[in-house]
Simulated assay, not measured.
Amino acid sequence: MTKVGILGGTFNPPHIGHLVSAAEASEQLGLDRVLLMPVFLPPHKEAHADPGPQARLELCELAVAGDPRLEVSSLEVDRGGPSYTVDTLRAIHAAHPEDDLTFIVGGDMAQSLPTWREPEGVLRLATLAVAEREGVEREDVRERLAGLAGAERVVFFDMPRLDVSSSLLRRRVSEGRSIRHLVPDAVAERIAQRGWYRRGEP
Rank of each mutant, 00 (worst) to 15 (best):
K3D: 06
G5F: 01
L7G: 03
L7H: 05
F11A: 07
F11Q: 08
N12S: 10
H18P: 04
L19S: 08
V20Y: 13
V20M: 03
S21I: 15
A25T: 09
S26L: 11
S26W: 05
Q28H: 12
L29M: 03
L29H: 06
D32Q: 04
D32W: 06
L35Y: 10
M37T: 13
P38V: 10
V39C: 13
P42E: 01
P42K: 04
P42G: 08
P43A: 10
P43K: 00
H44F: 13
E46M: 09
A47S: 15
D50T: 07
G52L: 10
G52N: 12
Q54W: 14
A55T: 13
R56E: 03
R56M: 08
L59V: 12
C60L: 11
L62C: 15
A63Q: 14
A63L: 12
A65Y: 09
G66C: 11
R69F: 10
V72L: 09
V72E: 12
V77C: 04
V77Q: 11
D78K: 13
D78W: 08
G81M: 03
S83R: 11
T85A: 12
A91Y: 03
I92C: 00
I92K: 03
H93M: 04
A94P: 02
P97T: 02
D99G: 04
L101M: 04
L101R: 07
T102A: 02
F103G: 01
F103W: 09
Q111G: 09
L113V: 01
W116L: 05
W116F: 07
W116Y: 04
L123C: 02
L125G: 03
A126M: 01
A126W: 05
A131C: 02
A131L: 00
G135W: 05
V136N: 02
R138H: 01
E139P: 02
D140C: 02
L145C: 05
G147C: 03
A149C: 11
A149E: 08
E152T: 04
R153Q: 11
R153I: 00
R153S: 08
V154T: 05
F156P: 00
F156V: 01
M159T: 03
M159V: 08
P160S: 08
D163K: 10
S165N: 04
S165D: 09
R171N: 15
R171S: 15
R171E: 15
R172N: 12
V173K: 01
S174W: 07
S174N: 03
S174R: 06
E175P: 10
R177F: 07
R177Y: 07
S178H: 06
R180D: 14
H181P: 10
V183M: 03
R190D: 14
R190V: 13
R190I: 12
R194V: 07
W196A: 11
R199P: 11
G200E: 13
G200I: 04
E201D: 15
P202F: 00
